[in-house]
Design a protein around this nucleic acid. Structure first.
Lengths: 115, 115
DNA sequence: TCCATACTTCGATAATCATTGAAATAAATA
DNA sequence: TATTTATTTCAATGATTATCGAAGTATGGA
């Protein structure tokens, strides 16, 4: 990933409604979520959300497909991981202190066999 | 860090000139870099860069101080780390596959006692 | 004090982004 | 086929963002 691509992906999540939508979609996981349910959960007009979901799609961070009457949105995990990789590696590699602190992850990473 | 704060920080780096400035400042490190040198390096008008540096400052991602005639900019590493933490933990914790692939860090995390 | 240097702020302008009701499209159902 | 449901697209509007020359501010010398 290079700069322009990264700044586009960042723009996509650099907006409260879209960042929020993103969070909800992360929780929704592989099965995704219909646009309407998302609009309701985020309490925004459907046309407004539709606009924002389009932005996420155009940035490659989400995909959509029709299922009956609903249109299901889900995240494009790879794209997000590429972005995070870009930020932590390509961009911040000059400074290791910028790496994500992972104290809280040690347990899930190491199944505390020492207890 | 919560949503609004995060989206502000994201907006700050979601622009090519600013993301580029950010990268250069990461390399510059603790000693920082004068605004003029940065403008030259990035090949943008001084007033344009001044505008963008102000954005980085307002988002809390950079600080500046005068040194003689120059104004030195440097990164606020904590703020950036908080943002990366937010993205990887608060935001993506529902999906471990979004975590930064850290093959190179696994050894430092789990001292593979099970071998 | 006068001048050059290093920046920032201002002001005008252009471009992009966000919001929402209304109209359009598409699929399920009566 | 007419209706309801789910969602997008359109159009109008307002808000924010970006650009850059010119003017302003602060500092260090001559």
């Amino acid at each position: 990933m290079e700069l322009i691509e990264a700044s586009k992906a960042l723009s996509a999540i650099a907006q409260p409604i879209r960042l929020n939508a993103f969070r909800v979609l992360v929780v929704a996981g592989e099965s995704g979520m219909p646009a309407g349910a998302l609009a309701e959960k985020l309490k925004v007009a459907k046309s407004t959300l539709s606009f924002h979901l389009k932005e996420l799609r155009h940035a490659g961070l989400a995909t959509s497909h029709r299922e009956g009457r609903s249109i299901i949105y889900k995240l494009e995990y790879d794209a997000m991981r590429h972005l995070l990789d870009y930020l932590t590696k390509d961009c911040c590699s000059g400074h290791p202190e910028l790496r994500v602190s992972n104290e809280s992850e040690i347990n899930t990473c190491c199944p505390t066999t020492h207890v």
